[in-house]
Nucleic acid binder design. Structure first.
Lengths: 146, 146
DNA sequence: TATATATTCTATCGAATTAGTAGTTTATTT
DNA sequence: AAATAAACTACTAATTCGATAGAATATATA
């Protein structure tokens, strides 16, 4: 499940994507426009900033803006920062791999094989969808064998 | 993230799949073989039984077995019972749809469009992978447009 | 330099979820 | 009746989620 945090974060990022090049946006405005609890949004934007996706400026005339163009920021990046790895289980994560405590033979683990496919499919979609092209459905899943 | 509950449940189901046709399996044996806390496993098996995936018998000579052949049970079914809908957000779930509280225009919601793709990709994999064919990689994700 | 503005930081909090455990009850076989 | 094994009920500790509160810091401008 996508957390509210990630959902709010994505909303904010899309909003900032639409405003890209038009100067900084205030947290307050963003919160009101997108119906996000302001204080919660503060933390979210800060986290996205610390991970290099946002630029901010304090004081009058300040606010938040994307640190690069919307085409260069993917939904996958945002989700990973706010919700952690896309992988359903740590042992199939490419960005945060961790061996299963119990599992002795990773090669033969059925669960791992399936979840690997799920991870790959999800990552393929989320990592190739930027804040610009988001609305387009650019992927499909095709049956191969059997 | 796949919960431990679902992970244990899948392990148990694969185990029962391998023992299909060889008589009932004891919770105790299953718990020990697969390194699952016995009491926790009890609850899991009960839930899978109540949802029609397992058959059980009390008393001596009793135990658990699949209620149908392993080919007929998919990983998706097991995960949905134990962890709920596959969809990352309720508004893209086919089995447990729920409108987003805030969202006024579902058609134009970017997040929804992306998560719909993720759901479809995940469901395609999990719903077409049975307890038998689990180890095979039968799907791939192909880029379409752009 | 004082003031207003806006982000940043630290801390806390209630509710829900997760991952179990304990103990009792019921059904079944011998 | 005794042994066996699942079924049921009820907790609980620890963590995560979704926030909120208030103070600190940086920046612009008058």
């Amino acid at each position: 499940m996508l957390s509210k945090k990630a959902k709010y974060g994505l909303k904010a990022m899309f909003y900032l994507g639409k405003h890209f090049g038009k100067g900084p946006v205030l947290i307050s405005d963003l919160a009101e426009e997108e119906n996000i609890p302001k204080k919660f949004l503060e933390l979210i934007l800060l986290e996205l900033k610390k991970n290099g996706l946002l630029y901010s400026k304090m004081g009058k005339g300040g606010g938040y803006s994307l640190s690069k163009s919307p085409e260069e920021i993917t939904v996958g990046q945002v989700v990973r920062i706010l919700d952690g790895p896309l992988a359903p289980i740590p042992c199939v994560s490419k960005t945060a791999y961790m061996k299963c405590a119990e599992c002795d033979n990773e090669k033969t683990c059925e669960i791992r094989k399936i979840m690997m496919q799920v991870r790959d499919a999800s990552a393929a979609i989320l990592d190739h969808t930027s804040l610009m092209e988001a609305p387009k459905a650019i992927f499909s899943v095709n049956r191969k064998s059997k």
